[in-house]
Nucleic acid binder design. Structure first.
Lengths: 211, 211
DNA sequence: GTCTATATAATGATAGAC
DNA sequence: GTCTATCATTATATAGAC
């Protein structure tokens, strides 16, 4: 969101008491509501009426400003994927940084608005999947790739994304017991060890084949 | 499928020319069609009419035999999750067996009917997610857990499932480029190395923290 | 700039005939 | 045991008033 101007608070639950007739504010409110709704229920699990209600407007304005639900989704994915959620910048501490952040954010009590949740809950729709494929390679995939030293950076970066995605899936979307109740320290150490296999395996994959 | 009897071939594309009025055959045909459809499009992505058409019957019979779409889904999940897809039985070769099987089945040309695909594409629906959580812990989760030596077997088993799920997600459902085009040998070795961290980390997770 | 009202299509589930 | 016909609901998207 950000920018533009305004006095009233629109970012929370719409703009019930806010000033009316402001195109950019209405557009931002719809987009923010879309990110929240798509993350919670996925592309097919939420209707434009619900998104509009979350922004304090009627469903008609969603298509007015974004053309279609699919185009709104594409913009919402871009907003959700834009901030680098786990990558902190240092290749040396990358494995630990990702593991710590992942264990904390997938904890049952956390309700962080996360791009991986959006991805998992929208993956069943083929068009949504294609939109997310493009966004993934454009945002976090590229960031990770450039951070990894050695050969096969793209393959290793996407395996990192696969592990992160899988942990989000089993721990938070499916919610299996052992992961949901796992000790944060133990979980962090195990994820970190798995990530190190990818981060440190410069050049030849066989270097790590006989650990 | 299996069992019962019959001469006509019902398993393929319904029973257009098959003998009519056989309750168990019709039920099996619907169930098989449901597994195929739910795996391809997910719980919300397919309607009961489509499932019925795949079995060569009308939509009404789906509710007649299974009560509701949700109950049909629960039985389809059980059928899909029942055969142990990756676990071969030997703890010593477990990492390599899973890695080989996973790399082969997630290859772009493969169109194997897989429980992880069913899971990923149905995860957006909360009721479907709960059904799959129960089935996961009942089937493959338990099999894996009993195969792992040492402490924290349940947590390590579910992390194995998380890695498998994530690879299915990024390579086949989202379809990112580097994983889709990855060399099978390189991919297998990297997945195997990550799995060994979990399979061999008996007792203390810190054993593997400084590879 | 935003609304009400509606067009059109699809959904899961059910009633009752044969 | 299986069908046709239909109910009630919901979905995205659009037309036209103010």
């Amino acid at each position: 969101m950000a920018s533009v101007d305004h006095n009233s608070d629109d970012s929370g639950s719409g703009r019930t008491a806010g000033r009316r007739r402001d195109a950019t504010a209405t557009r931002d409110a719809i987009l923010h509501s879309a990110v929240v709704s798509f993350t919670r229920a996925g592309y097919d699990g939420v209707g434009v009426r619900e998104i509009a209600q979350g922004a304090g407007v009627t469903a008609m304005l969603v298509n007015r400003y974004f053309g279609s639900k699919e185009q709104l989704f594409a913009e919402a994915v871009d907003v959700s994927f834009a901030p680098r959620t786990v990558v902190t910048g240092d290749a040396g501490t990358l494995s630990r940084d990702i593991a710590l952040s992942l264990a904390a954010r997938t904890a049952p009590e956390s309700d962080h608005l996360n791009p991986f949740l959006l991805m998992l809950r929208s993956a069943s729709n083929p068009r949504a999947a294609e939109i997310m494929r493009a966004a993934t390679e454009r945002h976090v995939g590229q960031d990770l790739r450039e951070l990894l030293p050695g050969a096969d950076a793209a393959e290793r970066a996407e395996l990192i994304l696969a592990l992160i995605t899988g942990v989000w899936m089993m721990r938070r979307v499916i919610g299996t017991a052992a992961l949901a109740d796992a000790d944060p320290g133990s979980l962090t150490r195990r994820i970190e060890a798995m990530l190190r296999v990818l981060v440190e395996s410069a050049g030849n994959a066989e270097d790590r084949a006989d650990i």
